[in-house]
Design a protein around this nucleic acid. Structure first.
Lengths: 223, 223
DNA sequence: TTAAATTTTCACCAAATTTTCATAATTATA
DNA sequence: TATAATTATGAAAATTTGGTGAAAATTTAA
């Protein structure tokens, strides 16, 4: 999970950052709206924590510009006493707000709630391609309509492949996505998991192609 | 859908109103409990959003009086620090609560959830699948038409499973749904409850499947 | 208050999964 | 073709995970 915190006060940023890191989130910082938009272009942000009062480009302006190009869940921080009317004026679209001083724990709780909400909406899908069927909700893999017993890691890797078809994916990327950003194991481990996954995929094992000196790739003609 | 918002702060009413109108709901307002009862007599209200701290007649009193004549789903708004009210409210049958300051989007989400729930409940008060029969209203579990003695937690977990069949559910989700939003116990506790629940389900114990490294899943072929 | 019921914690064990590693196989390139 | 680099594979070791029973803690009911 990538969190972008936009606030001109370094102190606030640091507190938020510390708590987010503790949750295993990756944190990006910006001290005003312009910097914030910059980060959005470069990084794949999942949720924004946004201060309203800022130099250069304030929170309202940032939010409007963000909405034009992205649709990222946003939590607004506002100091008590700031015009609530103005806040509520653009409150349609923001996902939550907190008044300063706020409890970092509360912020984390709200971030979790929002991420959970947006994840749940994405869940209801069943992927099918050739004789492969993947039920993400139930975490089941069917090969030619027969359930195949698959381990959690296998499933996660397969899901990652399916979501990025025809893309050469490095072992490092797989480690980051499936294992998490703080894994320090042997890259060769992936090879073994790929072996197991290929076996599970039976006659479709060749859809996972080795990309020499890079990693692997899931081949899919359709879509 | 007719929503009644009862709060003495006009600002809050306006925010709720704005969001509800945006959803296509019709909104009625009241600034205290007495006005609220007035509206109930005149209009056909589907759901109530109720503040606790109010002049003239507070939320709790309003709620009791409402319950005497009506049975309308109610979401309670409470300021932080009113923990007692919150808990008490739950025990007497409110449907949900939010602490101020709350996220308007969250409120809408909860309204939707409750409306959906109350629709579902009216339709299906008794669930049957194979030899399992669950009477939600009476909170009774029958296995092959014989009443099985089941604890409250067991029942809640089973109900959650039944409402989300064929879905891998994390222990965290179970904790959130069954225990509540702010429970900080050991996740392993779930395992023990699952054990007990499985025992209660007799020969259907295998319908609750372990999803390794995730949680559990209730299997149902039908529907 | 006491007793009973329910919930929670916890530690051990077994089983499933993950990781490591040595060796074989494959591929690219000089 | 020989060599180096890279990947595939099998098997063993290490780790993680879940099932379970029993005891402790808590809640509920009498």
């Amino acid at each position: 999970m990538n969190v972008l915190i936009i606030d001109d006060e370094e102190l606030i940023r640091n507190v938020v950052k510390e708590y987010c890191l503790n949750e295993g989130y990756t944190v990006y910082e910006a001290s005003d709206g312009i910097e914030g938009l910059d980060v959005l272009e470069k990084e794949n942000i999942d949720i924004i924590v946004l201060d309203i009062m800022m130099p250069k480009m304030d929170g309202y302006t940032f939010f409007q510009k963000m909405k034009e190009k992205y649709n990222i869940p946003t939590i607004v921080l506002s100091a008590r006493g700031e015009e609530y009317d103005k806040l509520f004026g653009f409150s349609i679209g923001i996902d939550d707000y907190l008044t300063k001083p706020f409890s970092p724990k509360e912020l984390i709780a709200r971030i979790k709630a929002i991420l959970k909400r947006s994840n749940n909406n994405n869940l209801e899908e069943i992927y099918t391609y050739k004789g492969i069927k993947v039920d993400f909700k139930g975490r089941v893999l069917y090969i030619d309509d027969k359930i195949v017993d698959i381990t959690p890691k296998e499933f996660d890797i397969l899901a990652y492949f399916i979501k990025n078809p025809n893309t050469a994916i490095t072992r490092d990327q797989i480690l980051n996505k499936v294992w998490g950003y703080d894994y320090f194991g042997d890259e060769r481990t992936i090879d073994t998991h790929i072996k197991i996954l290929r076996n599970s995929m039976g006659k479709y094992r060749d859809l996972i192609v080795t990309v020499r000196s890079i990693g692997y790739k899931f081949i899919c003609d359709e879509k």
